[in-house]
Design a protein around this nucleic acid. Structure first.
Lengths: 326, 326
DNA sequence: TTGTATGCGTTATCAG
DNA sequence: CTGATAACGCATACAA
């Protein structure tokens, strides 16, 4: 059994309140005499005291903990994002608990209920659900929350990339490579980013084939099977996992076909397939998110404006050669 | 303010304990009359009651929460592992909080202290620290703990791959490809897996160059710069991130040089570089880990034996051609 | 079948 | 400067 304030009080021949004050440090601690302070500190160290944070949070209603729920932690992009957010929060004195909705709406709901009950001070959410109402239903009113990557209409505390601009720039690059007809590999339509990207693409090119499925590699691989024999200049995938799946299955496929993709394909420049990738800026997203959350945690009441982070277009050697064969 | 048992009691004209019993469900709930049960349920629903899990855990000393601390969540391999573990735990009725030590010993220590204070029932740890003593110093005695991936001498609750066998098989494959001299890119020596892998490699080949650094892509890239102009048949990296870094910098380098690596290089078979990869079995690791932890959580007192998971060797087309040029 | 009383480990209020 | 004492929200032994 871990020692408590009361154990220390007994050992140091004083009261629980005094012990609490000493260990709290700060103003309260300064009003305690040097000898008692000494005895308390000694006892605490000797007994190996560790405060019970459950009890403390129950009393103070603060946990100095924020939760980050991502839609798929197996996706390296979210891994990188989580890592950056964790570091930024740590600098601000908060610790992070990470949750994974695993692209599962039921699980997301479950955690959305559970997390506040466990006493978090704030929440960063990459949501699956699509409306502010659905969110408000699950979350206690007043919980500082930042929506990341997939803004929800009406919720102003959000940090994201402009999907239209992002996708438009991707399309521009594809057009420059002579692409007219595309095959689209899209993630679930209830995810706004996938949906919007697919829409913009459809508005720019002739979509001769398409598939929808979970944002996992399998879907990308299935796409290539389904598209076999059809004719198009590019495959466009609405995220990196889908794109990797496409590439993974592409081994026996026309290598002159371009891949359009989002969010970082590893080792892209070594691949023989022409690739153009529209990358969101993970560092900036993480930084802005934490900044926005901490401001709320610090009790600022000024209105919060959505933050939009600029993006980058990256291509590999095979793509450049395709655009300008020299 | 979220409603409490007392609010419901008032609303349903009964006592807090009765409400508690009704809401608890199970045996206690069955001994309450139908009408009161009804009134309580109604009130609870109407007020939107959500139990305060902090208070409950404080009282019951159980949180139904386990923590997983990985050494680097930005590494997709750990992302996959985390995702699988989360799913398995969820099936068992536990929720997961994920922590990231980010290859930082100080941060690891901090979290190791913090987590138990927050009331977790169990811990799964991919440790940075190297000894059972160091671990026992941080953790309260009796906390169910499973060490994952990097066994600690003396701690029997561990799940891992046999690093010697894993590395030996990698070396066998390299030898078959005619490799004699290698350059080694190794992660920190205080991480047992990196260290052991490097040792085994050194015992099998002539190491003509080597570099050590954090297990990040930068280190792999730096290696290629450092090794420029030297002569060897293979570069061996002690994990996937290092390997990816090596590949990333390899663009202008001799493509006949083989890469030996661990834990999954994405899109390996599309790459023009000959690659052999020794893969640990993530699914089995996750499954065995959760099984071992849950057994402890259920209070089983029988002795725990370390679990060792078999591994797989994977090569790409470029490698096969190198072994047997036809 | 139900209510009362107590305690989980802290912090905060109020005396002294 | 310090010590009782009362919460925080919940679960449970003990009565009734």
């Amino acid at each position: 059994m871990s020692p408590t304030l009361s154990d220390i009080a007994k050992d140091a021949h004083t009261s629980v309140s005094t012990v609490s004050r000493v260990l709290a440090g700060g103003n309260a601690a300064r009003r305690i005499s040097a000898p008692t302070t000494q005895r308390v500190m000694d006892a605490a160290r000797r007994l190996g005291y560790r405060p019970n944070l459950l009890a403390r949070s129950l009393r103070t209603r603060r946990s100095h903990t924020v939760a980050l729920m991502v839609s798929d932690i197996a996706n390296p992009w979210f891994g990188a994002l989580a890592s950056l957010i964790e570091q930024a929060l740590h600098r601000q004195g908060y610790s992070l608990v990470l949750c994974n909705s695993a692209e599962d709406v039921v699980l997301e709901n479950e955690y959305l209920q559970l997390l506040p009950q466990k006493g978090i001070d704030g929440l960063i959410l990459v949501p699956l659900l699509r409306s502010k109402q659905a969110l408000d239903e699950q979350l206690p009113a007043g919980l500082p929350t930042v929506i990341l990557d997939r803004p929800l209409g009406g919720h102003s505390a959000s940090v994201s990339t402009d999907q239209d601009e992002l996708t438009t720039r991707l399309c521009d690059a594809l057009a420059k490579a002579g692409v007219k007809r595309v095959a689209v590999v899209a993630g679930p339509e209830h995810v706004s980013t996938h949906q919007r990207r697919a829409e913009v693409i459809a508005s720019r090119f002739e979509v001769v084939a398409s598939i929808r499925g979970p944002a996992r590699q399998e879907t990308g691989r299935a796409a290539i099977v389904k598209f076999a024999g059809m004719s198009f200049e590019a495959v466009v995938a609405t995220n990196n996992f889908l794109g990797i799946g496409v590439l993974d299955a592409m081994i026996s496929v026309d290598h002159a076909c371009v891949l359009g993709c989002f969010d970082d394909i590893p080792l892209m420049h070594l691949l023989p397939v022409p690739i153009v990738c529209a990358n969101q800026d993970v560092e900036k997203l993480a930084e802005a998110t934490v900044k926005m959350l901490v401001r709320q945690l610090d009790g600022s009441k000024d209105v919060i404006e959505p933050v939009v982070i600029p993006s980058t277009i990256v291509t590999n050697g095979a793509f450049s050669k395709r655009v300008d064969p020299r």
